[in-house]
Design a protein around this nucleic acid. Structure first.
Lengths: 335, 335
DNA sequence: TATTATCATGATAATGTTTTCAAAATTGAG
DNA sequence: CTCAATTTTGAAAACATTATCATGATAATA
């Protein structure tokens, strides 16, 4: 078709389309920055010439790689999804590729943490709801891969955190204010040994507030069960069938609060009349089922994490930041 | 060693070794052309800086890409998340990176579709619940980027589909069997003009089955509202407040079924005694709220799509496949 | 010792793409 | 219809490396 026998370059495309090379480059990499009309012309030229950008040259000219990695627990839990949503939406505006690394075992996390910084084709990393060990932190720093942690903080890395302990306290105070004194706690047990578990903190704050009010939670009323609906439901059922059943339950997670609600429904217990239920997270579904809960801004946490990360990529000398997101009590119909 | 916080270039190495960049380049690529003495100096400098020729490293990294892209609507809707979950879990076993491209406008979809085949450096692409135009299909084929479509099929590309029309029929038959004759339909309206909307198909199958049974759905009982809980709730409320309110509602989506349930609860209507509600999808949350629904295997669809994709990457000459996933009626407590 | 052949080296051009910055074109407000 | 604001565009610089070619150093020969 055109200047032939050599593989076409961006210049050929530009000529054929009657635009500058810059415009062609933009059409390929940031199509939204070029007018639809020219975009179409350029695309046509690209197709006509079967032009493929040369990876080598591309890598050379590129100042950044345009890729952000996110390590997240294998996403069964809705809360990860919501954080991810915040991340994805912020990132897509910024023209970064989003690479998801799902972790289903501690082993795999280790794998990622030891290889990712090395292969070095990431501009930055977000680690969601996973504790990272000191030596891994060191490695991240050594290969200066900008990193932001969500939910499990570390002093040497940027993080977006919430005040779990305060959240527990909020839940306790709310229930106390409503007149409850016989209260149970339902949490989960996926505790990595080498880090503080957010749920433990929630329990701690919760318990402290109740103690300070002059009451207490009997040991049998603190149940830790694997993170699943059925388990939560079973545990709630066990508690609710006792003679001395509590009048309120604080579930460390909305997800588990749903289990509690189902258990109550199964036993014919009215909510909120006979049993108050309060959750934690404010998942999308909390609204669907009118669950009273402590809201942590999940989407927001993702957004903030990305903004923090991008700022640190732009200016690596920026000091480490720890951002604390506020919690809000959302009063709905279950407590 | 060297103070920069930027990754070292060949220039840094040259400086440290006290030679020219040309010599460093030679030392790396044609060591026999440089004197043993300088070679040693250069190698030392390279080690000290842990220098990796950038472009080369990148080119290498790109040769074996190990990357699968997924284009998905900006994921508010739970059903995308569940498909994604199937995709992610299958992929992580296979050691492929998962790149997520979220689409929030038709425009952006276009961008991805024209750009990705060129520079995406992808081994394969999965497009979830988005219709792709003929010319884009052509481009994908031309640059032979193996692709699998989920939910919106195209004759020339592999796809994983479900029988929406049959699903509608199933819902109708179930409700008819339960003795309902006055039935409403609630769907959403995000219809891309250049493709068949799954929800329309569900309605079609639903209506046909009811017609065949000798009944019919009055026009006022077919409501299409934007995909959101509130809208669904509002519309359901409007229908339920009529004199001639239906005794059953088929929601084209579990998500919207939840809106119906809330509306009913708000009006003091008992489910399933006074109103049967049946959904479509079998989202996670369907189980939490005991929703009777038509199950399409969302996680499974993701898994199958990836398997299909990998098979086609391994053997590009494989003929195009269209896989149809079965639907199952899941009877729970709402109908 | 003078001359040439050989070899290691460095300065510089070339590579194909992206990015920057300022100019040009378009849109919006009054 | 004008002027400001915004968007789109092109020229040129930047990017990290390799290739080319001239130069200086060294070794070999007469």
């Amino acid at each position: 078709m055109l200047p032939n026998n050599k593989t076409p370059t961006i210049i050929d495309v530009a000529q054929l389309a009657g635009v500058s090379v810059a415009t062609v480059s933009r059409a390929i990499n940031k199509p939204e920055k070029v007018s639809p009309k020219t975009l179409q012309r350029v695309n046509k030229a690209i197709d006509d010439l079967s032009f493929v950008p040369k990876a080598e040259a591309r890598a050379r000219a590129m100042r950044h790689k345009g890729r952000i990695g996110v390590i997240t627990p294998f996403f069964t839990a809705p809360s990860f999804v919501q954080r991810l949503r915040g991340i994805a939406s912020t990132l897509s505006k910024e023209n970064f590729d989003l690479i998801i690394y799902t972790v289903d075992s501690n082993n795999r996390l280790q794998n990622y943490l030891s290889t990712l910084p090395l292969t070095g084709n990431l501009d930055g990393l977000v680690i969601v709801s996973l504790p990272v060990a000191d030596e891994d932190v060191q490695r991240l720093l050594k290969f200066n891969l900008p990193t932001v942690l969500i939910e499990f903080p570390h002093p040497l890395l940027n993080s977006v955190e919430i005040d779990d302990e305060g959240g527990g306290r909020m839940a306790a105070e709310y229930l106390l204010k409503k007149g409850h004194t016989c209260i149970a706690f339902l949490g989960d047990t996926d505790l990595p040994e080498y880090s503080i578990h957010p749920v433990s903190l929630r329990l701690k704050g919760f318990r402290t507030a109740i103690d300070q009010a002059g009451y207490s939670i009997p040991e049998e009323f603190v149940r830790l069960a694997p993170y699943s609906q059925e388990q939560a439901q079973l545990n709630a059922r066990a508690i609710l069938m006792r003679q001395d059943a509590p009048t309120a339950i604080f579930a460390a997670t909305d997800f588990q609060a749903l289990g509690v609600i189902k258990a109550a429904r199964g036993l014919g217990i009215n909510i909120p009349e006979s049993l108050a239920v309060i959750g934690f997270d404010d998942l999308d579904m909390a609204e669907y089922v009118d669950l009273t809960t402590i809201r942590q801004h999940l989407d927001e946490s993702g957004r903030i994490a990305i903004e923090l990360l991008l700022a640190h990529i732009a200016d690596p000398s920026r000091p480490v930041q720890h951002i604390n997101l506020p919690l809000t009590l959302i009063e709905r119909l279950t407590a």
